[in-house]
């Protein structure tokens, strides 16, 4: 039972011969699978920008959004903590200039606050098919490589075990004045990432990094989906 909304987005990208979904498209696919993502709008011009700023509100994050650009930080295409319309307009111009003609727009995103960053993802193993990943996110993903995998489909217990498998598991507890992360939400997210992998053979890899714990609620802040 494929999700139709997600299928439309993926088919469109495939027809265009693209190897990735844009961040915005990836998040729409996630949202179609009930995975919480940042509130965001994609804007292409000044009128859109003004409307978008009203919708999202300050402070916000602005990102260059194109399927052709994977690593935005390195290219200066991310502006965080934008607090005024003037700042937003300046950022808008800079991002468009930085995109060097790649097709796309500027993503206006709510700024999710939270000190805990997780990663979720999906990879296809040649033997075992789609495998879901969970671990410490942000810059720690590659530095600590503190991650666990499970083959899809995941059961609730598989998802819970993954969270217990990582060395940094205590990050999910109520620590240093922070609330405990909503485990049920995390479980559902991991199960649904697996479902996306099972439903769409064309999705080769998924990277949700960071998934920020805001209060107790996890939210996908950045998303990458690689197509066949």
């Amino acid at each position: 039972m494929k999700n139709e909304k997600a299928a439309k987005i993926i088919d469109k990208a495939l027809k265009q011969g693209r190897k990735t979904l844009s961040e915005h498209e990836a998040k729409q696919v996630l949202a179609a699978y009930d995975i919480p993502v940042t509130k965001e709008v994609l804007v292409g011009d000044k009128t859109g920008l003004e409307k978008g700023l009203k919708k999202i509100g300050f402070p916000l994050v602005m990102k260059g959004c194109s399927a052709d650009i994977a690593h935005k930080t390195e290219k200066g295409l991310i502006h965080v903590d934008v607090r005024t319309a003037t700042e937003a307009k300046k950022a808008f111009r800079e991002i468009l200039a930085g995109m060097e003609g790649f097709e796309g727009g500027v993503l206006l995103q709510e700024m999710v606050k939270g000190r805990r960053e997780l990663v979720m993802g999906l990879t296809r193993d040649p033997q075992f098919g789609p495998c879901v990943m969970f671990g410490l996110g942000g810059i720690f993903t590659e530095i600590l490589r503190d991650v666990a995998f499970r083959r899809a489909p995941l059961e609730i217990r598989d998802a819970k075990e993954m969270m217990q498998d990582i060395k940094g598991r205590k990050i999910l507890d109520a620590v240093r004045g922070m609330e405990a992360a909503d485990q049920k939400m995390l479980v559902d997210m991991l199960i649904n990432v697996g479902r996306i992998g099972l439903d769409f053979d064309d999705i080769m890899e998924i990277d949700l990094n960071p998934v920020i714990i805001s209060g107790s609620k996890p939210v996908v802040v950045d998303a990458l989906m690689v197509l066949k």
Partner: peptide, 12 residues
């Protein structure tokens, strides 16, 4: 050759 963190973490 992989593009995502997830795939690069998931060696055999």
């Amino acid at each position: 050759s992989v593009a995502s963190h997830t795939a690069s973490m998931g060696g055999s």
